[in-house]
């Protein structure tokens, strides 16, 4: 079944998070929707292996990586293409070129950075696009350096430098929501300082606007950092019922005391015979 939609509805950050958490293998196609009808349709392709990004390109002819190698003058493009065609059916071309001594590890890293990190990060600034994920596409060995990156690591890097957040406005955690850690122990990802600071507050009790104040961050920034932690699969947003925010009055006496969460009055349990009867009754309606 289709995993498809519009980026305006399901953002790239959410897609990447989904593909990583689902350990997905296959091809993500992003078709850029441009208001200018005369422009050529522009497609982007990102390949995943077990939830990690292994290659990216804007073409499907498997010449992208060879082209990049050629441009850098490390190998003739033709040579690279020939290697790609002859022996790239079973393993990434990057690994083959490395074992043949034609490219160094450093060069592969630079290639991966240019091919995946730079190209994919640029996709995050797209205003809209149509996406589709196909899990039946084989790995494109001729486009692969042999290196990979977890999808959400790419998301983190991309969102750290994202300027225009307007497309993500409805996805950001609400100022009145708290964030709560959903992993055991410490995050494995490399977090930056502000992400660490927010992570320290991920206990599900403090509203983001309070956290922002404590960290002396603009609220918007705090929401953006929280969103990064959410997409990295580290925290979840927990809406708080802010009884205190409505009830607190300027003239209220005494220090503002956090209203303790109301202890849910456990509903009295229903009996087993009741449940059996109910199921029997409902079965008559199916």
């Amino acid at each position: 079944m289709a995993v498809t939609g519009y980026l305006s509805e399901f953002s790239l950050a959410e897609i990447f998070s989904f593909l990583e958490q689902g350990n997905k293998t296959g091809l993500l196609t992003i078709c850029v929707l441009s208001e200018d009808q005369s422009k050529k349709r522009e497609n982007h392709y990102v390949w995943f292996n077990q939830g990690r990004i292994v290659a990216a390109s804007n073409r499907l002819d498997q010449h992208g990586l060879a082209n990049m190698i050629g441009q850098r003058g490390w190998l003739g493009e033709h040579t690279a293409l020939r290697v790609a065609q002859t022996c790239a059916a079973t393993m990434p071309i990057g690994l083959i070129l490395k074992t043949q001594g034609l490219l160094t590890v450093e060069q592969l890293k630079l290639l991966f950075y240019a091919q995946v990190m730079r190209q994919v990060c640029a996709l995050f600034s797209l205003k809209d696009g149509w996406f589709q994920f196909d899990g039946k596409v084989p790995l494109p060995f001729a486009e692969m350096t042999g290196l990979n990156a977890p999808a959400t690591e790419v998301t983190l890097s991309a969102l750290r430098v994202l300027k225009d957040w307007s497309a993500l406005a409805s996805k950001l955690p609400e100022p009145s929501s708290a964030i709560k850690g959903i992993i055991e122990g410490k995050p494995q990802q490399k977090l930056n300082q502000s992400e660490w600071h927010l992570w320290e507050f991920a206990n599900g009790t403090l509203a983001l606007h309070t956290i922002a104040k404590q960290l002396q961050l603009p609220l918007e920034k705090a929401q953006q950092i929280a969103f990064r932690l959410v997409t990295a699969g580290l925290v979840e947003e927990v809406p708080l019922v802010t009884v205190s925010s409505v009830a607190s009055r300027p003239e209220a006496t005494g220090p503002e005391i956090a209203v303790p969460e109301t202890v849910p009055a456990e509903a009295t349990a229903v009996s087993h015979s009741f449940l059996h009867n109910l199921v029997g009754f409902l079965k008559g309606k199916v």
Partner: peptide, 11 residues
């Protein structure tokens, strides 16, 4: 997810 997190916290 928001609704679920809300409910889970309370019940």
């Amino acid at each position: 997810r928001r609704i679920r997190a809300f409910m889970r916290q309370r019940s």
